[in-house]
Design a protein around this nucleic acid. Structure first.
Lengths: 334, 334
DNA sequence: TTGAAAGCGCTAACAT
DNA sequence: ATGTTAGCGCTTTCAA
């Protein structure tokens, strides 16, 4: 790859570097028609491609933003990434994707790497454990947006689902269908920090509003590996729950696994609602009732917020949590 | 964000820029203990972070590779990306992910953008329609690897599934289970170019080897939108197929959709095998027999190949297609 | 053992 | 309308 530089083009076209630079940046105001053509030709002939790294160094901006997700394997993450990508693409921004694996160390390392790479802004699904760093970036007025989770005491714009509403939609639907003993099951690690708490709180609140008792034995937040056992215990109670809300896609899948292994029938033996739309929800037998998130909207909004911060160099101080409406998608599982 | 530069550190520590640079690059061979400590302290005190853009410009390498996928929403893509990420992370490489949407124009634009950004190498799920560009990069000895597809006449290392074998595994299993009228259904656009052809060829070959007739009416390669209709037509034949191989995850889902809408029973009314492991294969009722790809291995190998090219500046001229073994995962759908 | 100076490829005053 | 020049932040000879 013989790199041809702006100097080569300048020589070839018999003009100065600055003229070529003007051309590249479309500042044609004072450029002679002939010069313009000569430069154009030279670029063609030499197959010249500007070196963005050099430009970035000079301009102190890379037209790149970093995205640190909890885990790219989650459908939610990939859909958000896709939305961010699409939005950025329109403004000729690129994204660098990083997996923090819900690991604060990794998250820290990635943030530092991205800053060193001079990305113009960052979107994070935060672990919540690097408050100092978050705060420092905020103080530095660095373009930053959180997704899916928010971090208490840190006024960084956050894209969130209205998690309480999500739980409420589910509970209300269970109640409408006549269920009274309702449980909730969620994974402790997977994307949740604030979300998980909100979902559980919303769950309790909604139960209370429907004059239903809050039974601790019906509420489990536990690592995926122990979910089968927990489920077993729950359903072995004297008065087992008749319906379960799966706090995220992972728990939903674990529940389905259990149901299958024990040849239970949905919704007769157990009614189920999941939070997060999953690819197979409508294909499954029975169809899975689900609370879906407007993922693309959320990703788009996140991207819009960073780009806006980048372009205006101004934080939106007032509203710092953007809530999105969950939606109940009714199918046969409840 | 008050950027502190190497010059600031140098001043603060009362040494020259070069000394600081030495420190940063861990060339301690000739550095006095005291100097070292002074520099270390200055870096701490100022919270200095090296500017990688400047370093890249000087060193002509960005420690970044570009990944252009057909569509990040496909599970296959995300898993491969994840594997690439993991592998690169170990060598402190970053990845820039781009969606070509199977669109040659977009692919071209992205390749050029990535080159302009001076990424050290590129991994592509190629559309196959930018042969000139591919060839140019190859001629330039630019580190490049293809995944999932290969492009005829272009000797670029390609990571591929042994697609013929995949079809053969499926057919053999159908036969073993006593099915004789076997069909195949695949989407025309989605990630396929060579793969799809290979899968269909393998299908035919395997049929022949099992002394089964090759019935054109049992083989459809069609856009997703028309898949329902095609399936309807196929099953309305006088002698409809008893078993169908889904050429990829999308077609599998379409088949399941059809099955559900028409209240068919798997495998009694129709036996099914899918290519590509899907998240719900084991949860589904009945469990879905599937031919899985070693996705993580494939992603890892892709990453290893580019990094190797980057590090050695040498193409591996001999073998340019790396075949990976598909695996039959037996469940109840066949 | 450390420093001075040149230069990576580009942009942007400022001259002309 | 176009060229000269300085400099972005870093690395790297080469000198001291």
């Amino acid at each position: 790859m013989t790199k041809v530089t702006i100097t080569d083009v300048a020589k070839h076209a018999n003009v100065s570097k600055s003229t070529v630079s003007q051309y590249l940046n479309k500042r044609f105001d004072y450029m002679g028609q002939k010069t313009k053509e000569r430069v154009e030709l030279a670029i063609k002939e030499l197959g010249y491609q500007p070196n963005i790294v050099a430009r970035s160094l000079k301009q102190k901006s890379t037209s790149t933003i970093g995205v640190i997700v909890a885990n790219i394997l989650h459908t939610f993450s990939t859909q958000v990434i896709r939305a961010i990508e699409d939005y950025c693409h329109e403004s000729d921004f690129h994204i660098i994707v990083c997996n923090a694996d819900d690991n604060p160390e990794k998250e820290k390392k990635y943030i530092e790497m991205l800053l060193a790479k001079q990305v113009d802004g960052i979107i994070i699904f935060p672990t919540g454990s690097n408050k100092d760093l978050y705060q420092k970036m905020l103080d530095d007025n660095y373009p930053l947006v959180f997704v899916d989770r928010t971090v208490s005491d840190i006024k960084i714009p956050s894209i969130m689902l209205d998690n309480e509403k999500a739980s409420d939609l589910a509970v209300a639907h269970f109640v409408e269908k006549g269920y009274e003993r309702i449980g909730i099951m969620t994974t402790s690690i997977s994307r949740s920090i604030a979300s998980r708490v909100e979902r559980i709180n919303g769950f309790k609140k909604s139960l209370a509003e429907h004059h239903l008792p809050i039974v601790d034995d019906y509420m489990k937040s536990i690592e995926v590996e122990h979910l089968q056992q927990a489920l077993h215990d729950m359903l072995a109670l004297k008065e087992p729950p008749q319906a379960i809300l799966a706090g995220n896609d992972l728990s939903l899948m674990e529940i389905l696994k259990y149901v299958k292994a024990n040849a239970l029938s949905i919704p007769n033996d157990l009614a189920v609602i999941g939070i997060d739309e999953v690819s197979f929800a409508s294909l499954y037998n029975p169809g899975l009732t689900v609370i879906s998130q407007p993922v693309f909207e959320m990703g788009k909004q996140a991207a819009a917020l960073v780009l806006q911060q980048i372009q205006t160099k101004a934080k939106s101080e007032q509203q710092h949590i953007y809530r999105f409406e969950p939606m109940l998608v009714k199918r046969e599982s409840c």
